[in-house]
Design a protein around this nucleic acid. Sequence first.
DNA 1: CGAAAATGTTACTGGTCGGTAACAGCGCTG
DNA 2: CAGCGCTGTTACCGACCAGTAACATTTTCG
Lengths: 200, 200
Amino acid sequence: MTTDFRKPSRRSPRDRIVEAARDLFRRHGIRGTGVDAIADAADSNKMTLYRHFNSKDELIVECLRHAGMEMDGFWRELEDAYPGDGLGQLRSWVRRIADHLGDDKCQCEMMSAAVQLTDEDHPGRSVIRMFKDAQRDRVVELCRRAGVADAELLCDTLLLLIEGARAAQQSSGAEGPSARFAEIADAAILSFAGSGAAFK
Amino acid sequence: MTTDFRKPSRRSPRDRIVEAARDLFRRHGIRGTGVDAIADAADSNKMTLYRHFNSKDELIVECLRHAGMEMDGFWRELEDAYPGDGLGQLRSWVRRIADHLGDDKCQCEMMSAAVQLTDEDHPGRSVIRMFKDAQRDRVVELCRRAGVADAELLCDTLLLLIEGARAAQQSSGAEGPSARFAEIADAAILSFAGSGAAFK
DNA sequence: CGAAAATGTTACTGGTCGGTAACAGCGCTG
DNA sequence: CAGCGCTGTTACCGACCAGTAACATTTTCG
C-alpha cells in the first residue's frame, strides 16, 4: 500500500524535471534551454538533474519518450471511445489535432526536435523515428479497418497534412493554411472511405 | 607577402558570408552555428561580418531574405517555362519540390527558422510571414488560372502537403510518408482541376 | 600615383553553457 | 536510535559565444 502522503500533490524530482524540460523545450527550443533553467523551473537543482540523467542529451531522449508515451495513451483512449471503428477513430484523431493546433502545448515536440537535433547521430533521432514508424503502422491499420482500399496512401496523406498543419502553424500563424486543415483532412478521409480511390 | 592566388572574380565578402551562414544554418541549425564559424566558412573574419551586419539576428534576417529572393527567381523561371499555364506551373512546382526533398539543401530554411526562432518577436519571423503570405497569393493565383473552382482550398491543401513532406522528411526520413508526396500532391491537383470540387 | 574605403588580424570582454566536486540536510527504513 | 539513499546548496571548471577595440593590410578609384 503506497498511499504516499509524504509530499501531497508533488511528484518526484525526476518527473518534475522531465515535465519542466518538455515545457521549456517547447517554448524556447532545445538549444535555447539551459539545464540550469530546467532545474530551476522544476523547482529542483542541477545536481539532482545530473543524478538522473547523465547528460542533457539523455534528458532530451527521455522527454521524447514521454511525449511518445502520452500519444500511446491517447491512442488507447481513441480505441475505447470508438471500439473497432476505424473510421470514427481516424476522424476523431484528426479533429483532436485540429483543435490543438493553436495550443501553445501542441503535440509537435517530435517535429521540433527533428529540426533542432541537427546531428544525424543524436540518440533522440532514433526515438523520433521509432515513434513515427509506430504511428504510421497504427494509422495504416485504422485506415484498413475503415475499409479503405489503399490504406497506406490515405495514411501518408493524413500524416503529410498533419505535419504540414503543424509546420504551417509555426510559420504562417493560425490564419494560414493550417486553418483549413480539419476540412481538408476530413474530406480526404471521406473521399477514400467512400470510393476507396485516391482523390477521386 | 601572401601571393594572391585569388580567383579573378570573387563574390564580395558580404555575399560569401550570407552564403556560408545559410549553409551552416541548414546543416547545424541557427542556434548551433556561431558567428566565428560563419566568418571562417566564408573565408572572411568576424570583424568584416560585423561591419556588414550589426548582429547575428540581422544576418539571420538577411539569410531569410535571400532564401525568399531565390524562390522569387524560381517562380519567374516557372512562368517562363509554362507561360500563362497555371496547371503546368503548379505541377512543375510540385515535381520540383519532390525532386529536392532529399537534398541536403532542400528549401526548408523558412520552416526550420520558424521552429528555431522561438522568440515570437524575432525580426526574422515577420520575414517568414511575409514570404509565406506572398507564396500563398501566388499559388492561389495559379490555381485560379488552372481553372480550379475553390482555388484557395487547393492552394492550402498543397501548402500543407508540401510543408508536411519537408517535416516528414526530417523526422521519418526519405522512406517515410514524404516518399509519396509527389503522387499525393499531383492527385490533388488533377482532382481539383478535373472536377473543380474537393477530393471528390 | 595616392588617399580613402574596405578588408583582415589579433586580442580581448562579459556572459552563458554543460558538467562536476564537496558538503550539508532530509526522509525513509531497520 | 543509527544508517543510508536521495535531495539540495555552493562553488567551480573549461569551453564556447556574441560582440568590440586597435591596428595592419589590401583594394578601389579619382
